[in-house]
Design a binder for these strands. Structure first.
Lengths: 206, 206
DNA sequence: GTCTATATACGGATAGAC
DNA sequence: GTCTATCCGTATATAGAC
């Protein structure tokens, strides 16, 4: 799965990568110093450089790993048999909670911050969201449409709308204020978003 | 309106600030070098430091000015008399276009990137969005409710939902891909968001 | 007031001991 | 393989000429 460029694996590889991850996530790319990373990883600078040829590749490897980790397990599980009104609030609340938890939040911040300097990382992040959030969501809605629970429509669009509602309501607060939304707020956003969606797309009973 | 801390105004003040702005917006805080800023502003480093005591205050002044500028004129104008279905798509398309235009886009990126290092700037940004986007939008919807065009509901919440739909659908693409959405895409997001909102909140004709 | 030239520290990266 | 000690460029910031 990975034939990188000149990154040496070895005994302390993960220790080094995790230390680097902590510093990069906190400081960003440019402000993170290699000395600081070495301290965080409890190794010398020379050891760092025995694993990574330079700071730039160290950063890329750290973010690649964080992405793998962050999207490893499903972001939400859905009972495709349950009725939309029953399942959707929970699904969206789960998604919302995942989005504002660490390391997703720091990952989002740093990917946005470094998108111009590391466009491949930004592209990989966008693709991961598409594959692990948007598509499963669209398929869930497709299922409801097949069961005639929801009016037929463009589900790729509505999945994007749901993600936008969740992230657009929670990320500004979480990213700008240090004060991460609490569980009550998360559930409130999940629930109100579900209501909005169902009001707009649910099959009218009439 | 501003009794800053030790920033000297003078003949080349704006020239310096604009040069600094260009470099900071492109590189971020840490990666921007003072040499580069001096070159962009066509002055010497010593001149920079005659206006700003240090790089940090230079950055804060640059972002304060960018915020003033970005939110100076109304983000959207709305005919409060027009019917929601008539007015809303245009309002949202205008908002969407503003959001993905420069310097708003770079401003958003850098505020998010530096939110932990410059929390006051992040707070000022969040407040500007609240004052210049969310509140006017909520008041617009309040007007429609008063005219019985829209079902009564929590308009602060629905204004946040509208902003979330616009920003959540456009910003990821604009921030992560360099390739800013074109006018067609912007109008499509504005229109589809209006439709979603009206389906959910418009007074049923029945 | 603005520039040239410089002080001083810290950055990334490496040589060589163990 | 890992560390200590160091190289050398570049960073922020300033002194002094004009």
């Amino acid at each position: 799965m990975d034939g990188h460029s000149a990154i040496t694996r070895g005994r302390k590889f993960e220790q080094v990568r995790d230390g680097a991850s902590a510093v990069f996530m906190r400081e960003g790319y440019a402000a993170a110093s290699v000395d600081e990373i070495a301290r965080a990883a409890n190794v010398s600078k020379a050891t760092l450089y025995s694993y990574f040829p330079d700071k730039r590749l160290m950063f890329q490897e750290v973010l690649r790993a964080a992405l793998d980790q962050g999207f490893r397990e499903a972001v939400f599980r859905a009972d495709h048999a349950a009725a939309p009104a029953k399942a959707l609030p929970g699904v969206l609340t789960t998604l919302a909670g995942w989005l504002v938890s660490e390391p997703q939040l720091s990952l989002h911040r740093i990917v946005v911050a470094e998108a111009t300097r590391f466009p491949e990382i930004a592209a990989a992040y966008a693709e991961a969201v598409q594959d692990h959030v948007i598509r499963p969501m669209a398929e869930l809605i497709d299922g409801w449409i097949a069961q005639s629970k929801i009016m037929p429509h463009d589900t790729d669009q509505s999945a994007h709308q749901l993600m936008a509602l969740i992230s657009g309501q929670l990320l500004p607060c979480a990213l700008l204020s240090e004060r991460v939304p609490d569980d009550v707020r998360i559930a409130q956003v999940g629930t109100s978003t579900a209501i909005l969606f169902l009001n707009a797309y649910a099959k009218q009973v009439a």
